[in-house]
């Protein structure tokens, strides 16, 4: 079973709940996601949160982010596109676990849950294009 679902969201913290609802609906499509749904929803929501928090510094904007969830040949990919501040991948660092502070936890969670986290710059009309993948 392959699928592709897309939805746009406002760039604001209130959208994060909608992102989770969208993802949960998509993951109902197959029982193979059942055990992983909470983790996958968390990873996607953390990535969306990073856009709101870091891409736009939580400032109001008319921009939207686009989320695409695809499943092809046993690989799940969750793509997030936005027009916020350009991400410099080398600047993204997960939290050092010995350093007990809040920052970087979301990125750490994404890395723990997903197999691969890649920023691409090839998408026309968008500034940032993050692709999270996991094989099943």
């Amino acid at each position: 079973m392959n699928f592709e679902e897309t939805q746009n969201f406002k760039i604001e913290s209130a959208s994060l709940k909608e992102v989770r609802v969208f993802a949960r609906e998509v993951f109902k499509k197959s029982s193979i996601f059942e055990k992983h749904t909470d983790d996958l929803v968390l990873a996607l929501a953390e990535a969306a949160q990073n856009i709101v928090k870091h891409g736009y510094n939580n400032h109001p904007t008319e921009d939207e982010m686009k989320i695409v969830i695809k499943y092809n040949d046993n690989v799940l990919s969750m793509e997030l596109m936005d027009k916020g501040k350009p991400v410099v991948p080398s600047n993204i660092k997960p939290r050092d676990l010995d350093d007990i502070k809040a920052g970087g936890l979301g990125t750490f969670f994404i890395g723990q849950i997903m197999d691969e986290v890649v920023f691409k710059t090839t998408k026309v009309n968008w500034v940032n294009h993050l692709i999270l993948t996991k094989s099943f």
């Binding site: 968390l42 949160q49 007990i100 979301g106």
Partner: peptide, 16 residues
Amino acid sequence: EYMDSSGISVLIESHQ
């Protein structure tokens, strides 16, 4: 029912 890294931050900051 759900807590993300921001919620965990609240727990860490409260603890500290």
